[in-house]
Nucleic acid binder design. Structure first.
Lengths: 184, 184
DNA sequence: TGCATCATGTAATCAGTTACATGATTTT
DNA sequence: AAAATCATGTAACTGATTACATGATGCA
């Protein structure tokens, strides 16, 4: 399991509340690891119980109080231990591919609009990633030479961009194939 | 959930036992949907209970009997209904990316061998996919014109190939970045 | 007045993983 | 004799999703 570790990384990058983490998991770190607020609150509680996190109650004016979490030394240790462990290369879990193969037994043309919708969504995501790259990774280097964190965040983002580009090209291939089969 | 649907597709392509399905989930359909035999047996039992599958006890010489499952009309209907439902474009779940961002807080160089291992594994998978493409999709068309099932299986495989190629290029990018940061 | 955002959670359910378990046959 | 393959499952646990729940503030 890696949600705890994704949370540790995110909190090391910047401490924050459960709510804030949930928002980060809708962007940034969420580009390659998703989680809902329910999951996050549950795991935060467990991590706090394990002494991995420090909590600070932050009173806010005109807003409910929030609990700001930051990584405690045992949390750091847990992250470092996990970084040492080998993980197995992930396998895909691509629902759309199941549908495409299933379409052979129904009407392939009926899938066209669904695939177009996915094409659109991935195009939007690519645009969003590219805007983020322009915003965060085209300025001058931080003073004091290379910033490892920034470089590593950038290479991960480049992975997201490559994934979206590849997916867009493939979905176009799927659309062409479906049109060919439908004779349109 | 789509495991039931992946099973329906696989059984429509060819009826088989739970054991045989588990093997297909290690290849072919497993390229984009994984499942272990425990999961498969559990779901098969439920699907049988729901009347989605027909079972035939097949006695075998010199081997334990097997239960051969095939798709019953209600199972077909369930698959077709699912094919109509829109699904949301999937989000990635990339553990290695979490590690890469985490490495900023530890020693980035320590990740190099892990990334190399992944590079190797994806290279192997690509080789395997390409061999499958050569084997299954370079012969002459089936007699009687285009075979929709074959075309659709091929476009899904092309997706797997594109994914592995993209991943290999990205992992190389990651390695270059790590080496740059480590000064090696 | 109504909707969106900030902020936190519980409960129930569903899906997936890991470990355990059995027993025959075939290959090295 | 040992290891691999065929064939089937159960049990316990962990992780993820969905639905429900509350309550304040800010904006249109």
């Amino acid at each position: 399991m890696a949600l705890e570790h994704a949370i540790l990384v995110s909190l090391l990058e910047k401490p924050g509340s459960g709510y804030e983490l949930a928002r980060r998991f809708d962007r940034s770190i969420g580009y390659f690891w998703t989680a809902t607020h329910q999951q996050i609150y549950r795991v935060l509680k467990r991590m706090e119980g394990d002494g991995w996190l420090d909590v600070r109650e932050v009173p806010q004016q005109a807003r409910p109080d929030k609990k700001e979490y930051s990584v405690a030394p045992p949390g750091r240790d847990a992250l470092f231990a996990w970084l040492q462990e080998p993980i197995q290369p992930e396998s895909l879990r691509h629902e759309l591919a199941v549908k495409i193969r299933g379409a052979a037994f129904d009407d392939p043309a009926a899938l066209i609009s669904e695939v177009e919708r996915h094409h659109q969504a991935h195009g939007d995501r690519l645009t969003h990633y590219l805007a983020g790259e322009l915003r965060d990774f085209t300025g001058p280097d931080a003073p004091g030479g290379r910033d490892a964190g920034r470089e590593l965040q950038h290479v991960v983002l480049r992975g997201g961009i490559a994934y979206e580009r590849m997916t867009l090209a493939w979905l176009q291939d799927v659309l062409d194939t479906l049109h060919r089969l439908a004779g349109t």
